[in-house]
Simulated scan of single mutants.
Amino acid sequence: MLTKKQLDLLAFIHKRVQRDGVPPSFDEMKVALDLRSKSGIHRLITALEERGFIRRLAHRARAIEVVKLPDSMTDGGFTPRVIDGDLPDTPPPPAAQPVVTIEAQELPVMGKIAAGVPIEAINQRVRGVTVPASMLAGSGAHYALEVKGESMIEVGINDGDVVVIRETSVADDGDIVVALVEDQEATLKRFKRRGDAIALEAANPAFETRVLPADQVKVQGRLVGLIRSY
């Protein structure tokens, strides 16, 4: 059994849903029933819901389903209708993210290269490292070396980094190269020509530039990439 106010509110909601396709607001309900505050509407809504005449839909603003009507308001042909409010039932699914495929290639790590005092020439593989294929620019074979020392820190090459080298015997001024000195020592330095001599420049003021006769310096490769582990 419904009270007169409950019946009036149910009739008002049902009429507005049938006419407009959306339920009335709490303010409209308050005015229609001549109540002084919306708290009274809340109590009536709760009472109707507890008695099974309406159902409020969670997470949806102003969404009420009229489940049934009393016999005095229906001829038996009533069908419940769900009215969508302002908010969706569930958030829309996130946009599909494109699948990015990165091609990679394994390179041999041919020991350590000095970024400081030259060390013995590089001549054997110690392990492998996987690098993005996009890093392997240009023609020719590639290999990797682990950096030892801090002579190139001002260009971002730190002790322990792995540098990717493209094999070549020529270099332009300013290239960072693997240079073989007197067929015995290998070092990673910036390559500069000075007349008939070659300057191997460090990128750290604590290290001096080495100037050597051109026939004592052989370029073994040019820096094309760097890998850092943290």
Score class of each variant (00 low, 15 high):
K68P: 01
T101L: 14
K38N: 14
S139N: 13
A115S: 12
V147E: 02
I122N: 13
L57K: 11
G52P: 08
G111Q: 14
A133R: 12
I83R: 04
I83W: 00
A137S: 15
A47N: 12
G140I: 07
P91N: 07
G85V: 06
G111K: 14
L87P: 00
E167N: 06
S151R: 02
A144L: 07
H142D: 03
D34N: 15
P80A: 08
D161S: 07
K68M: 11
P93S: 08
A141Q: 12
L107M: 10
L35N: 04
M152H: 04
D75P: 00
R60C: 09
P80C: 02
T90D: 05
V162H: 06
P132C: 08
L145Y: 01
E154K: 04
T74Y: 05
D84K: 13
V67T: 11
I165V: 14
M135S: 05
A61R: 14
A141M: 07
D84F: 11
V131S: 05
D75H: 00
A47C: 07
G160I: 07
H142G: 03
F53V: 05
L69K: 01
A61E: 14
V117C: 05
I64V: 14
M152E: 03
V126G: 01
A47M: 03
L57A: 11
V66I: 15
V117D: 08
E65I: 08
K112S: 14
H42M: 12
S39T: 15
L145I: 06
A115R: 01
N123M: 10
L57C: 05
E120K: 11
K68A: 10
I119R: 13
E167Y: 07
V163N: 04
L145W: 01
P132L: 09
G111C: 11
P70E: 04
D75T: 04
R43G: 14
N123C: 09
V82P: 04
I165S: 04
G76P: 03
V163E: 01
E167Q: 13
S151W: 06
V117W: 02
A141N: 09
P70Q: 07
E106M: 07
F78H: 00
E120Y: 09
A58D: 10
D86R: 11
K38F: 00
R56Y: 02
A141W: 01
L35V: 12
V99S: 10
